[in-house]
Amino acid sequence: MSFGFTSTPEKKTSAMQSFAIVLGTKNRKKVRELADLMGLSGIAWRSLDDFPNVPAVDENGASFAENARLKAQGYAKAAGCWVLAEDSGLEVDALGGEPGVRSSRFAGEPADDARNNARLLELLRDVPDEKRTARFVCHMVLARPDGTAAAETFGVCRGVILRELRGTGGFGYDPLFQIREYHRTFAELGSAVKSCISHRARAARAMVPYLAKLSLELDAPNRPRGA
């Protein structure tokens, strides 16, 4: 297979052929979310729940990129399938990029959103408003069945950390993360807006051309010569 993305990716196409991609998660909600963000027909999205014998990958990378690669390449090689995995979290400038890869367990085990938010507010208690800048980051990796990486994309959404929680939607740090342009937190904006401007949405949209190219290459042996 020549699939290596050595040329400029093609634009999104509606002529996607049917093939399966495993998302490197057991979270069915995330599977639906990512499938919706891609907006591509013809792909059979599957989760790790469909592969009960595949062992969990140890996410011990020092960055979102490393963790995304570990998951995508590890699960692809173990399952023998194309795998799309991502790793994401919050980076706060005043904390030197923390919580970073520890975002989900910032306050320790077990992971708890309320405790994570409380710890973040405590650490930023004396930080002035103008220095409470932060960003949500998402790194996404598509891996071949042999475990090698085929494509990587990156998405970032910038904002500021408020001094109190606002909004009831979303999860994690969403009630503290305000988008300056909207003067609202992710928890106040709702899923429709978040699906357009979030870090995960941006990484997903950047991945679409690669998936379209993959579909065309996988379908090439089945197309009539000259088509």
Rank of each mutant, 00 (worst) to 15 (best):
G108T: 06
H199L: 05
G42Y: 08
E181W: 00
E181V: 00
Q73M: 13
T168W: 09
A220E: 13
I43C: 03
E109H: 10
A134P: 02
Y182P: 02
R205I: 12
R46A: 03
S18D: 09
N53A: 15
I179P: 02
A62I: 09
T148P: 09
A56E: 15
T153H: 11
E86V: 04
R200H: 06
N27D: 11
K71C: 14
G97H: 00
V156C: 11
F154P: 09
P175W: 00
P209R: 14
D219V: 10
R69N: 12
M16I: 09
D49A: 15
L189W: 01
A227N: 13
I21S: 02
A206W: 06
Q17F: 10
V92K: 00
C196I: 01
V31A: 07
A118F: 02
R28N: 13
N67A: 12
P221F: 03
S14N: 15
A78S: 09
F3H: 14
S47Q: 08
G4E: 13
A78I: 03
A151E: 11
E86S: 11
F3W: 15
K26N: 15
A44M: 13
G169M: 04
R225W: 10
F51V: 04
E217P: 06
E66A: 14
P209W: 15
D50G: 04
R135H: 07
F19L: 04
A72S: 12
F154Q: 13
N117I: 11
K30W: 09
H183D: 14
G108D: 07
E10Y: 15
A143D: 00
D49N: 15
L120T: 00
E10H: 15
K194F: 00
D50R: 05
A114L: 10
V22S: 04
P209V: 12
A151Y: 08
A192D: 01
A220L: 12
A204H: 07
P128W: 01
A134F: 05
A212N: 15
R132M: 06
C157I: 02
L124G: 05
P224L: 13
A220S: 14
R115P: 03
Y182L: 10
A62F: 07
G74V: 10
R200G: 02
G4Y: 14
A114D: 08
I179K: 08
V92F: 00
C81L: 13
D146M: 12
G170R: 01
T6G: 14
R200L: 05
A85N: 07
R158V: 10
K29L: 12
N53I: 09
C138Q: 11
T6L: 15
N116I: 03
E33T: 05
L123T: 04
D112F: 05
P52E: 05
E181A: 08
D36M: 02
V83Q: 05
L165H: 03
A227I: 09
G169H: 00
A35I: 05
R105D: 04
S63Q: 06
R105M: 10
L34H: 07
L90R: 01
L90G: 00
N53H: 11
D50T: 05
N27V: 06
K194H: 01
H199T: 06
T13C: 11
K194Y: 00
L40S: 07
E91K: 07
A212M: 14
F171N: 04
G108S: 03
P128F: 01
A192G: 03
I43Q: 03
